[in-house]
């Protein structure tokens, strides 16, 4: 499915928390349940089908468009996903994902179609160090792009705030110079 917006990932009525926890149960809420009833899962939605499991979420192009709500990334992480694969990501979602250790893996349209055509037992591996995504059954592999700074952060568990706090003097110097 294409153009999955953040209102679908996590509807606004679930944004009222003041912590980052527990959003996973409301991931894709309105696509998962009939009339918002947790006892009535929609059987045709992949996350409700037991044959799908794992830490990789695969979606159509322009994933995460719309609202800047980081709750979208939190809900994906809380639901157990560490990687989102798509052929195109919305900018703000991409940053939010990276800031929470969820890796957005952007593949070509052709590779994405190959993944969608696999049967439901197919397995995927993402190697962040090598920046590759591999389909096990066929051995097909694609290289993906990631900002080298962000990659280093992800591999070492640093975040942007650590860095920004470390350059406080530069920031103060900048403020003084511009008056």
């Amino acid at each position: 499915m294409e153009n999955i917006d953040t209102d679908q990932i996590i509807p606004a009525r679930f944004l009222k928390a003041t912590t980052k926890d527990g959003f996973g149960k409301n991931l894709f809420r309105d696509w998962r349940f009939i009339n918002d009833d947790e006892t009535k899962p929609k059987s045709d939605f992949p996350l409700n089908q037991s044959q799908y499991s794992g830490e990789i979420l695969v979606a159509g192009k322009n994933f995460g468009c719309g609202s800047s709500r980081e709750h979208a990334a939190w809900s994906i992480l809380d639901a157990g996903f560490r990687i989102v694969v798509s052929s195109f990501f919305a900018d703000i979602f991409k940053n939010n994902a990276l800031n929470n250790g969820v890796v957005p893996v952007q593949v070509t349209d052709a590779f994405l179609q190959k993944i969608f055509q696999l049967d439901n037992k197919a397995e995927l591996t993402v190697d962040l160090e090598k920046q590759t995504i591999t389909i096990h059954s066929t051995g097909e592999q694609e290289y993906f792009d990631i900002n080298s700074y962000k990659k280093t952060c992800l591999l070492n568990g640093y975040d942007d705030i650590d860095y920004l706090l470390s350059i406080k003097e530069d920031i103060q110097e900048f403020e003084t110079q511009r008056g």
Binding site: K20, E70, N95, N96, N99, D160, I161, Y163, I171
Partner: peptide, 16 residues
Amino acid sequence: IGTSEVEMVFASQCLL
């Protein structure tokens, strides 16, 4: 921006 970035701006008045 997302909430992590809100925190960055709070902490440093800057963003990457």
